[in-house]
């Protein structure tokens, strides 16, 4: 196994681990903004899950998102040179298209981050921009995670 293959494998593993952390954080926050419950509630897993303080997640989500985007950007040339050609030869164009869409939506998420972060610095829990920017980021992160997983299953770097 060549050195660049080992470094790509390590990068891919780190990329996957960071994306799992990001997915967990953003899902927690999405659930918390959709189902706000009494913070003193004690009964049941669902109530405990939704009663988390979502404000504390915002900065961590921004850091994880940018880190993961940079890791993905480092791996992108390898995908273009190795994996994409194989996928095209196998006529798996919807998989190629989904990956292209993931890249564009990933950039959209980067553009959304400052707005998202600024809404969590305010005190208005019912801020519609806060709710919708959080959910939009959740959709982007989930889509990117699933597409990345599918592409890696078909033809990993």
């Amino acid at each position: 196994m060549a050195t660049y293959q080992i470094s790509n494998l390590i990068l891919l593993l780190v990329h996957g681990l960071v994306s799992v952390a990001l997915l967990g954080a953003v899902t927690h926050q999405c659930v918390a903004v959709l189902w706000r419950t009494d913070r003193k509630a004690e009964a049941g897993f669902v109530r405990r899950y939704t009663s988390v303080a979502p404000t504390g997640f915002a900065t961590a989500i921004c850091v994880l998102y940018v880190s993961n985007l940079l890791l993905g950007a480092l791996l992108y040339p390898e995908y273009r040179l190795e994996s994409r050609y194989s996928l095209e030869e196998m006529r798996l164009l919807p998989v190629v298209g989904a990956f292209e869409l993931k890249e564009h939506w990933g950039a959209v998420g980067l553009g959304l981050l400052p707005l998202y972060w600024s809404t969590w610095r305010g005190a208005d829990n019912a801020d519609w921009t806060r709710v919708m920017s959080t959910l939009t980021l959740g959709v982007i992160v989930w889509f990117a995670f699933l597409v990345g997983h599918v592409v890696n299953n078909f033809r990993g770097v």
Binding site: P94, A98, L101, W128
Partner: peptide, 27 residues
């Protein structure tokens, strides 16, 4: 800023839709 935030959010959704539309030939 509040109105501008909503407009920016709308632009985000529009861009997501535009990107999907431009890539439609893959699907």
């Amino acid at each position: 800023p509040r109105v501008l935030g909503l407009v920016a959010l709308g632009a985000t959704w529009a861009l997501m839709a535009v990107a999907a539309f431009l890539l439609r030939s893959y699907f």
